[in-house]
Design a protein around this nucleic acid. Structure first.
Lengths: 339, 339
DNA sequence: TAATTTTGCGCAATCGTTTGCACGATGGTT
DNA sequence: AACCATCGTGCAAACGATTGCGCAAAATTA
């Protein structure tokens, strides 16, 4: 039926009043008479009038849209995080423009460009694994559009970010294993280039220290996180002169590979602790006995909150020192429910 | 530094030419002299000029944004589908506004409302499990904004949709098991209210028929898809006078529960076939020997393509018969690689 | 009744960009 | 020398809604 959406103008024309009156009537402005308001509202709903948001956004210079760029939604960390982001966004009247980089730096650049042309009010980013330069985010600074990084944050200064600290969780994990009586604890760590690997190692060391145990570096091995790589380092571990009775693995995949491998060797009695990535771990027969939780939902919420705060913050007048939010969400050990 | 973004007006003022000339120069319009173009472009890039998309969207009445509402991103079907949607969207110069209903009908309504106020150019929906009324989508028809449903489609007429047909895949699955020599094939189906359950059953029956085998309805059991429910129906199956040597399960979770249960009973030799939901199945020790694949990526792509076609379709003049797209993506049996 | 306040509404500018039209200045063709 | 394209540019309207200001009529007060 209605080919073009109804505008405020048409209502004004039909009612023979001015557009300003119509606008004010619809917005319940105090200076409009009750009868006029009624007439306007009645006609408006009859004509299925819907304010043209594009016009309003243009007028106010706001889109009420935040952009989110993250590596992979199929990783449960991110699909959970996006729920947190969404929840805050909707609560605060924003909507979410989503894009996945699929861990491709080139694509990420393109997406940043897209977000720029869409003129999002703010941007939330978890950078791709392959991203090594960060100039593409500079544009946003120039445009005065706030950017908040989360989880995977670039190694540069003067940025807002929310990330988890795996050190505390790892500390708890190793402590937990020690309390359980383990004395030889192995760790399958990720590549040394990752901050995350470093944090895990630090947590491990601190736990050993605080228990007055000596730290044996050879019990921490680096791994490329593939199945073959995991088996390889497991062999190293199992042939170690001090064979570990418990192993902390970099993530659930690695845990899975390692557990499967030990079972294929008919080895029992090794306790595993991992980092929460996969929900499916709950459905498996042989699982890690505990998990370091990074609270993706909470991280997402926090990041979105900060972003929206920044968007609505009064301009930084006088070019005063810009304060950067650097939020660290502590990780925490979660002990599996024994079945 | 720059507090307000540069506009075309400022460039015009500085260069002492009109805004129209600047606009045309930046758009490489043929009627602008080369020297002028150069001057304009040079200054524009110096000032970090970026066209104000809000103004442009307003002018053209297009946002180049499509809305996507789906139940749960943590379900791998959807997180894969969204990748397909995204890929098509970006290829065709659109961006994706995402929202999850978390299978809550109320929230879904709210999101539809949000999408409306954001004035997306089109909407892609996979309805929530709890949605039973569909009036909230009517608004879009009135506003002439196309809506395409995918995967979970509402049982109403005159809608565009893309969905998979599980009958063919199930047919292939049962056929495959028959070819493997199985003669007593069980099926753990979902609630009878679901279209998906019906399709599975039909596929099963057709496969039996076409092999001239008689169909035993008692070999198909309904299940609430929980672990307890699965175990219950497994007991029924295993105590059946014709104990199945192969079982088709409603989804990977059910398969997981069932396999785990048989293993706890030390029962071996039952072949399982499932429907592809969980990527993690690839990492497990005891898995279904085949899977019915529903091609979520392909479905997402197809749905997005149709939606964008609809958006750009010349208006349906003369109120002529609107053609509705009803696309069915056939499912297909994928046989696991033997390790 | 005159002066003043209140009430209700319209005018017009504004946001940044695009685009049809007109107009002057060239240059080339008869 | 008169004519016609062509080229380069500017003017102004348009997109839909909001909002400060002004003005008239009605209501209140003196």
């Amino acid at each position: 039926m209605s080919d073009k959406p109804t505008t405020i103008k048409e209502i004004a024309k039909i009612l023979k009043i001015s557009v300003s009156t119509v606008s004010r009537a619809l917005n319940d402005h105090s200076s409009i008479g009750l009868t006029t308001k009624m007439r306007v509202k009645k006609l408006a709903s009859e004509l299925n009038y819907e304010p043209n948001q594009k016009a309003i956004q243009f007028l106010h210079g706001k889109s009420l849209i935040i952009g989110v760029i993250l590596p992979e939604l199929s990783e449960s960390f991110f699909s959970t995080a996006i729920s947190g982001i969404e929840d805050i966004a909707y609560k605060r009247n924003y909507t979410v423009l989503l894009a996945q980089s699929h861990d491709d730096a080139e694509r990420e650049k393109l997406l940043v460009e897209k977000m720029k042309t869409q003129r999002v009010d703010g941007l939330l980013v978890s950078v791709s694994k392959t991203t090594s330069t960060y100039e593409h985010f500079e544009i946003f600074k120039k445009l005065n559009i706030p950017v908040v990084f989360f989880d995977r944050i670039p190694p540069i200064k003067d940025i807002h970010y929310v990330a988890s600290n795996l050190e505390t969780g790892t500390y708890e994990a190793v402590n937990f294993l020690l309390k359980k009586g383990h004395r030889t604890i192995g760790m399958i760590n990720g590549p040394n280039t990752l901050v995350a690997s470093h944090e895990r190692k630090e947590g491990y060391i601190k736990a050993m220290m605080s228990n007055r145990l000596k730290f044996d570096p050879s019990l921490i091995v680096s791994c490329d996180l593939s199945e073959a790589g995991t088996i390889e380092v497991m062999d190293t571990m199992l042939n170690h002169r001090r064979k570990p009775t418990a192993i902390v693995t970099f993530n659930d995949y690695v845990a899975l590979f390692a557990i499967r491998y030990t079972r294929s060797l008919d080895l029992k009695g090794i306790d595993f602790v991992s980092y929460a990535n996969l929900p499916i771990i709950n459905y498996m027969d042989y699982t890690p006995i505990a998990s370091v939780e990074q609270f993706p939902y909470k991280q997402g919420k926090k990041a979105a909150d900060i972003l929206i705060d920044l968007i609505n913050k009064p301009k930084n007048e006088s070019g005063a020192e810009q304060a950067y939010f650097n939020i660290v969400v502590e990780s925490e050990l979660v002990i599996s429910h024994s079945k």
